[in-house]
Design a protein around this nucleic acid. Structure first.
Length: 300
DNA sequence: AATTAGTTCAACCGCCAAATT
DNA sequence: TAATTTGGCGGTTGAACTAAT
């Protein structure tokens, strides 16, 4: 037997909210401050709605500091960077974007940004297939090839990671794995901008970010892989496919202890449960000490 | 002008973990 | 300690809207 529903779904109103309902909820929160019990709120506020629905409406729409639409290039970069690093942890990603909600970021990614990134990837694939004849490996081509014109330059930086070249993209982990596998940091070039996921301050942690005036589009003016947290992964190859799939072996072979600890810290932050098992298994093969489980303090 | 296809996004669903009883 | 309640999250859905034919 499952748990009891939080409300009687047959009797509460569902679907789009009316302006009157919005006002009831808004005025209740305004007069009572932070809501401690959303389940009890509908009755107190005079709303015929499920408490969870009220909470969602407030958090995703009625909160006064919410921003809708109009995503900036900087925000795009934050989302792509974090998605590549941690996958679809929308609440964490949204927490780094002031005024954005997890639902909004998720929708934005699913409807627009993902396509944008995929298009860039295909563009890059086309460049390597047709513009670098005779070269066997995409990465080698990038290193050997001077930066071409802007549009092609974008493509040239879009490198599938070595891990993704084999079966990584077909992992059952879905978009996070495949996208991460496609777009991973593969060199330690000085980044135009990068994001410190562990920083408490949202957006401000970007350094030397191109301004909108200087950069009409990050897709063109920024090396895509530079967005992907080189400081956290020690500058080495690191992909979502590694994280979800062959996690232990390839990562733990890294000789740089600083890189190892960064990787451990990152994975411990976001995958505390699965991560403990993986490190335990990996420890059989490599002499690496497992970090403690639990979220990073900076993320909580 | 009518129809179809594609896109967007608010809202819901179901699960999980923490808090409470 | 176990059972229950609640908050929070990510995935999914479907109505509304827009563009294409």
């Amino acid at each position: 037997m499952g748990r009891a529903p939080c409300c009687d779904k047959a009797s509460v109103k569902r679907g789009p909210w009316s302006p009157e309902e919005d006002e009831l909820l808004r005025s209740y929160v305004r007069s009572h401050g932070a809501v401690s019990n959303w389940i009890a709120l509908p009755q107190k506020a005079g709303l015929n709605r499920c408490g969870k629905s009220c909470r969602l409406r407030w958090l995703n729409y009625l909160r006064p500091d919410i921003k809708h639409g109009g995503y900036t290039e900087q925000e795009d970069m934050v989302i792509c960077s974090l998605y590549n690093s941690i996958g679809s942890r929308w609440s964490i990603i949204a927490s780094k974007l002031p005024g954005r909600t997890d639902n909004d970021v998720k929708n934005y990614w699913n409807t627009k940004l993902k396509k944008k990134a995929m298009a860039m990837h295909h563009q890059q694939q086309h460049y390597h297939h047709h513009g670098t004849a005779g070269r066997g490996h995409a990465r080698a081509a990038t290193i050997a090839t001077p930066p071409p014109a802007p549009q092609s330059q974008c493509a040239s930086y879009m490198q599938p990671s070595p891990a993704s070249a084999s079966s990584a993209v077909t992992t059952a982990s879905g978009d996070a794995a495949s996208f991460g596998a496609m777009y991973s940091p593969s060199h330690q070039a000085a980044p135009l901008g990068h994001y410190n996921v562990n920083a408490a301050a949202p957006l401000a942690e970007f350094s030397a970010m191109p301004t909108p005036a200087a950069a009409n589009s990050w897709a063109i003016n920024m090396a895509f892989e530079d967005m992907f947290l080189p400081e956290l992964v020690g500058g080495g190859d690191f992909s979502q496919a590694d994280l979800f799939g062959g996690f232990g072996a390839s990562l733990l072979q890294a000789q740089d202890s600083r890189a190892q600890s960064s990787l451990q810290e990152l994975s411990a932050c976001y995958f505390p449960n699965a991560q403990a098992e993986m490190w335990a298994a990996a420890a059989d093969h490599v002499n690496v000490k497992s970090p403690g489980a639990g979220l990073c303090p900076s993320l909580t």
